[in-house]
């Protein structure tokens, strides 16, 4: 399992460089559309490691085609310049009746399946690249339908899943989606996320995907129990942290992940080659 870190802001540039230099991570994941005004060659050269791409605001379920075509052209430039190891996006609702959510909405996996499938097909065709779609940290009981939705979606569109393990833990705590229900999705996935979450301010508590805390015991247990389903040649796992960015805390979590999955085979190979 190759380990990575998400790069969303310029302010963590030096820290990510240090994580790479000290061997805590093997690749870096750009929140790529934050950097659409940066020269793609600068993106390619900024870090001395492979690059994964994560799209946040394509809004491909809601945006019109000309907007998506323009977005895709810039995404394409980044894919080509960085020779990205994967491209990922989100299946999310950004608005309701034209009004923006600030805490994004989960789609209706049963009622909107055909609509989402057709949009996914169209979005992959516009980008001209396979896209891995991330699972949502479900709160409401619609999250029970998520595993079957992603299984069917990948079969019918050729898309992949960027499986966020801690989002699945949030869904398990919030609406009871069993880990076992994700087995086929995890087995087919090559790209993963993991992060900390925290409880809501008010009760009854719900787990919120905040990227501000250390990995929970539940997340680590889930990874341990499904270790051999997650780990496979070419697999990547991005540790996401956007708030409370403390170098030592991040390194401690990355070491837990290294211990759990073992030193990455690809990494060792690279080291042998460069030695």
């Amino acid at each position: 399992m190759r380990l990575g870190f998400n790069f969303t802001l310029g302010s963590t540039y030096d820290m990510v460089k240090r994580l790479i230099a000290e061997g805590h991570i093997d690749y870096c994941e750009y929140l790529v559309d934050n950097f659409f005004c940066v020269d793609p060659d600068e993106l390619a050269k900024a870090f001395d490691c492979p690059i994964g791409l994560h799209v946040m605001y394509s809004r491909f379920l809601e945006a019109d085609r000309p907007t998506l075509v323009d977005f895709a052209a810039r995404l394409r430039d980044c894919i080509d310049a960085t020779n990205a190891i994967y491209v990922s996006d989100h299946i999310l609702r950004f608005t309701h009746e034209g009004r923006a959510f600030f805490h994004l909405g989960e789609v209706d996996y049963s009622g909107e399946y055909e609509f989402v499938r057709d949009k996914v097909l169209e979005w992959q065709e516009i980008v001209g690249h396979r896209i891995h779609f991330e699972n949502y940290p479900s709160i409401m009981d619609g999250g029970l339908d998520a595993p079957a939705f992603f299984e069917r979606l990948t079969k019918e569109t050729g898309a992949g899943v960027l499986f966020d393990a801690s989002n699945a833990v949030c869904a398990n705590l919030n609406c009871g989606t069993p880990f076992e229900a994700w087995r086929n999705v995890i087995a087919a996935a090559h790209h993963f996320h993991v992060a900390g979450y925290r409880n809501s301010i008010v009760e009854p508590f719900i787990a919120l995907d905040t990227h501000a805390n250390s990995l929970s015991p539940e997340t680590l247990a889930f990874l341990r129990d499904f270790r051999s389903v997650f780990d496979k040649p070419g697999a990547t796992m991005t540790y996401e942290r956007d708030q409370e960015i403390e170098f030592e805390d991040i390194v401690a979590d990355l070491k837990l992940l290294r211990n759990l999955f073992g030193e990455s085979q690809e990494r060792r190979h690279d080291l042998v080659v460069s030695a």
Binding site: F101, E106, V107, M140
Partner: peptide, 30 residues
């Protein structure tokens, strides 16, 4: 499901109509 709550997610007035001891209320409050 989440979609049932979309209209309430930006409405303090609608939030107050949901029973405070239920998950839907916490989702909207969040």
């Amino acid at each position: 499901i989440d979609r049932d709550l979309y209209p309430a997610l930006m409405s303090p007035e609608m939030c107050a109509k949901y029973p405070a001891d239920q998950k839907a209320f916490v989702r909207i409050d969040t």
